[in-house]
Design a protein around this nucleic acid. Structure first.
Lengths: 217, 217
DNA sequence: AATATTTTTTAGATAAGACTAAAAATATTT
DNA sequence: AAATATTTTTAGTCTTATCTAAAAAATATT
């Protein structure tokens, strides 16, 4: 039995460690989940005890195969619930994260299977992130941040890296949504801003925004 | 902020104490939620501290208005989620209780409002129990246990008192469902059994079953 | 009314998960 | 390479919710 807290740590290690494979530092985990490093050390020991993580003192943690599967299962639940909230309950994409953080810990295999079916087996959540299947497999659509796209090229906005409320609200305000076709018109070296063109308008975005928008390639 | 555990105690007191109004004994709570009496005493003190319950040593607990509202809000969530699981995810009514026990503690007012809307403002859950509205109000359909219905009378099965898996499975096996019209044909004093008639068949039920079936009157 | 039984409370302990402060190990500077 | 700074771990404390065992109060029985 994996506790709620353990699930959150597994998720953090997975996200920080390049799918859980690379070793992650204690401090990085502490910062991500907003706790103290000493609490992280305690929990890491417990995860290692349960063979969910590999841990060598002073050298960071990585996930075992079992830990990785558990992490992916939690992420699967999180993304399915977000999809439910947006597609069925008409939440806006910036409102769903906190609620999904709670729902992802509900324990029932059958519930998730049925939810998956109810939603018609979605492959991506409302932020464009891939939803792992029952076995933990998923396919990431090939994409590049606008930061790394040549002027003159275009693509479909398929995901956003930053899923914070502030950023999603910015996108809503500026009528940018997943699925939009975006063309990169110009790059201004002075302030690293980009000019982009959508069906409806042309606008300038900061470097900060550009690096968080991923276009299909 | 009310914790998950506190919510469970409030629910227990509400159910045991005639809508939370009557004083409830420590032992009764302990038995219902499967803990020790000493744990109950501890928690009751905390609830009284938070002005969710009225407590006088050795004389049981009752809920304050605030405690009662919180209890009803948890019950509302529980029953809405059960309705969701059965009506939207196609769960059978005997499978949903444990899952709803978890879902009822998810904290988001907006989520419940939207769920309520998505389900078309149901007034009763899959077991026939009334769903309180946002303000805690609900209307109980007038009903009587088959135990107290005269031979020859009939009514619609509107709720079941026992919601245990075993009992619900028994009803499934015998094709008895909410909404069925049932006529009480005969009572056998020797073993307190009843003969009942539905559209499709005539059958005999034990006293134990009869007291758990409620017909509209 | 006195005794026995049951119920409830108190006192003290435990486990999970977090914290602070100090010690130990590793990294970075000079 | 020594000194300094940063990161990580340890040791000890706190809170929440539980438990056991014993004491106190209420109820039941003779």
């Amino acid at each position: 039995m994996v506790t709620l807290s353990e699930e959150n740590y597994l998720k953090a290690i997975y996200h920080l460690g390049n799918q859980g494979g690379d070793a992650v530092s204690t401090n990085a985990i502490a910062e991500l989940i907003d706790t103290k490093a000493s609490s992280v050390t305690d929990m890491i020991k417990k995860l290692a005890e349960k063979e969910l993580a590999n841990y060598i003192k002073y050298q960071g943690v990585s996930l075992t195969e079992s830990g990785r599967l558990t992490a992916k299962s939690v992420i699967r639940k999180h993304r399915l619930w977000e999809t439910f909230l947006v597609n069925k309950l008409n939440f806006s994409w910036h409102e769903v994260h906190e609620i999904a953080e709670q729902l992802e810990h509900i324990k029932s295999e059958k519930l998730i299977d049925k939810l998956d079916d109810f939603l018609d087996y979605p492959t991506h959540d409302p932020h464009g992130d891939p939803i792992p299947d029952k076995l933990g497999n998923y396919t990431k659509i090939k994409s590049k941040s606008i930061l790394n796209i040549n002027t003159g090229s275009q693509g479909v906005l398929i995901s956003v890296k930053d899923s914070s409320k502030a950023f999603l609200k910015y996108l809503n305000k500026n009528e940018l949504a997943l699925g939009d076709t975006i063309k990169v018109i110009d790059f201004e070296p002075f302030d690293d801003s980009f000019t982009i063109e959508t069906k409806s308008k042309t606008m300038t975005i900061s470097k900060n925004v550009a690096e968080n928008l991923y276009l299909s390639i």
